[in-house]
Each structure stands twice: as structure tokens, then as C-alpha cells.
């Protein structure tokens, strides 16, 4: 059995090296193929502010990957700051001091859910008519940003300048 020790330790070391491949966290995440082809070569042409292509298209992935991806967005916000993200799910509204709009993705049992807040325009309640009805299936495209609420040190994240398509379910 001791003869197996060296190859086994070698296997574990190589697996450990694999875990360090690429930069730490989500910073080595591949961008969507569409973004690459439309801009030609990566990052050479700056997209226009109003209709930039998507950097991370979560609608191309299964629900497991979307859940994990959104988790990464919460865990490593710096990687996603300023990126265009597209996600499909159900519209949920939380009413606190103002209305907060979320695109929520659930698994089949609807017990494991994850979602991202988004805002259209300035994000105040005057724009409430711009949003569809709650529990509508939507696809949201927006720019990821982090922010803090007045009087709170907690860091929140959301998709700003979001555009919404309705009736598209993942």
C-alpha cells in the first residue's frame, strides 16, 4: 500500500494546482460569446453607453449554473462591477421604504432561489409603471453596480439602467 502513496499524493497535488488555475474568485469567468463576436476582438472597441452588448448572459445557462453565478456575483462584486448582465426569471417586488424589484431564479421545487435586484431609470417609485406585474416571467439586461443605502453600511448590488423583456422563461 505504501507504493501507492507517491502517485496518490501526486494526484492530490495536481488537483490542488488545478484549483488555483486562473485568478482567484470569479475574475477568470468567460464572457459571453456574443459580446466577443459583435465587438470583433476583445475589448478593442468600446461599446456605446446606451446599447452595449452583454458581458455575462445567464439566459444561456441552466438553473444550477445561474444559481451559482448569482452567488458569485454576491460573493465577489468587484469582478462584476460595470459589466452588462442578462438574466431571466420571475419578477418579485419587495415593499419597504420604497419598492425593490428583483429578477428571481428558482429550481424546480421552488425552495432554492436566488435573484438580483434591478432598477429601470432612477429607481424611484415614480417609475413603477415601467415595471410589469409581479410574478411575470421576465428577462432583464442591466449594468451591475454596488451601492449603499442612506444610513446603512451594508453593501448591496443591483443591475442599473435595466431593460426588461416579458414572457421569456428560462
Amino acid at each position: 500500500m505504501k507504493k501507492c502513496l507517491m502517485p496518490v499524493i501526486g494526484l492530490i497535488c495536481s488537483l490542488g494546482l488545478l484549483s488555483g488555475c486562473g485568478r482567484a474568485g470569479a475574475s477568470a469567468l468567460p464572457v459571453s460569446k456574443k459580446a466577443e463576436t459583435v465587438t470583433g476582438v476583445k475589448e478593442k472597441k468600446k461599446p456605446s453607453k446606451s446599447r452595449r452588448d452583454v458581458d455575462y448572459d445567464l439566459t444561456e445557462m441552466g438553473s444550477d449554473m445561474v444559481y451559482a453565478y448569482v452567488f458569485q456575483m454576491m460573493n465577489d462584486p468587484k469582478t462584476f462591477e460595470g459589466k452588462r448582465i442578462k438574466i431571466a426569471g420571475e419578477l418579485q417586488v419587495v415593499r419597504d421604504r420604497k419598492r425593490y424589484y428583483y429578477c428571481v431564479v428558482k429550481d424546480a421545487l421552488a425552495c432554492c432561489s436566488n435573484g438580483v435586484e434591478f432598477v429601470c431609470g432612477k429607481g424611484d417609485d415614480k417609475n413603477a409603471k415601467a415595471y410589469p406585474k409581479e410574478k411575470t416571467d421576465i428577462t432583464v439586461t442591466g449594468t451591475y453596480e454596488t451601492y449603499k443605502e442612506k444610513g446603512s453600511d451594508s453593501l448591496y448590488c443591483r443591475l442599473k439602467d435595466a431593460t426588461i423583456e416579458t414572457g421569456v422563461k428560462q
Partner: peptide
């Protein structure tokens, strides 16, 4: 549900947790 059935928690591991497993 996630704790009992391990739905997607394996996809949310940090590098520290991976090294603990290794």
C-alpha cells in the same frame, strides 16, 4: 432543503473550502 438534499451548494464553494477538502 439545500442542507438536506445538497441542491447546488457544491457549486458555491470558496477556494478555502476546496483546500480544506484537498
Amino acid at each position: 432543503c439545500t442542507t438536506l438534499f445538497g441542491s447546488t451548494s457544491i457549486l458555491t464553494l470558496t477556494i478555502r473550502e476546496v483546500w480544506i477538502c484537498i
